[in-house]
Amino acid sequence: MFKLINFIGFQASWWLLILYQNQYWWVVAALLIAHIVLVGESLTEFAVVLVAAIAGVITDSLLALSGVYIFSGSGQFLPIPFWLILLWFAFASTLRHSLAYLSTHYWLAAGLGAVGGTLSYVAGMKLQAVTFGLAFYPTVFLLAAIWACLMPVIFLLSQRVEAVAQRVNGSDTFQTTKEKL
């Protein structure tokens, strides 16, 4: 049941942030805080979400700096807007829950990343949340390649964070994603 709630929470966050961008950031932040508090292993969950979100923010920042993405707005301290950073945190909150199955199936994660990640940005472009700086098809192919690599990497990072948390905690109270399945 929690996996379904996690999936619905991410979808709600995606739509709020894409359609309204910074207007309802506080709703998504509240959902993320509730997620961290309510999920077991809160410190491990927070660490996984943080590391995965940072990987995504770095990736999108590099794409924005290279002109692949163009975001409206001025006065940003990062190359990507705050709402997109928050979206990465929301996405990262699915890794150990609604997307946990992919953590041990890297080829499937790569394939779904290539399709799902790319379609997410195409939908964002169609809804005018982002502009592509390159022509449409080269951008789509570039995003598919990046997401095909990024998804397995994010799952590997997640597993490394979980392993470190187990060693730091020194007990068996932490379950890895693989053990949960």
Rank of each mutant, 00 (worst) to 15 (best):
K3G: 06
L4F: 12
F7T: 10
F7G: 04
G9A: 07
Q11A: 00
A12S: 08
I18C: 00
Q23P: 01
W26E: 09
V28H: 08
A30E: 12
A30P: 13
L32F: 12
L32M: 13
A34G: 14
V37A: 10
G40Q: 15
G40E: 14
E41I: 02
S42P: 06
V48C: 12
I54F: 15
A55P: 01
G56Y: 10
V57C: 10
D60C: 06
S61I: 07
L62I: 15
L62H: 15
L63M: 11
L65T: 13
L65N: 15
G67M: 15
G73S: 02
G75E: 07
G75K: 11
Q76E: 12
Q76N: 09
P79C: 11
P81M: 13
W83R: 02
L84K: 11
W88R: 13
F89Y: 12
A90C: 06
F91M: 07
A92Y: 02
W107C: 09
A110H: 01
L119A: 04
L119Q: 02
S120E: 02
V122D: 09
V122I: 14
L127R: 05
L127T: 00
A129K: 01
T131K: 10
T131R: 04
F136R: 04
V140E: 05
F141C: 08
A144R: 05
C149V: 14
P152C: 10
P152F: 10
V153G: 05
F155C: 05
L157S: 09
S158L: 13
A163T: 14
V164K: 10
V168H: 08
N169P: 09
G170L: 13
D172G: 14
T173F: 14
F174K: 09
F174C: 00
T176A: 12
T177F: 07
K178P: 00
K180T: 11
L181A: 11
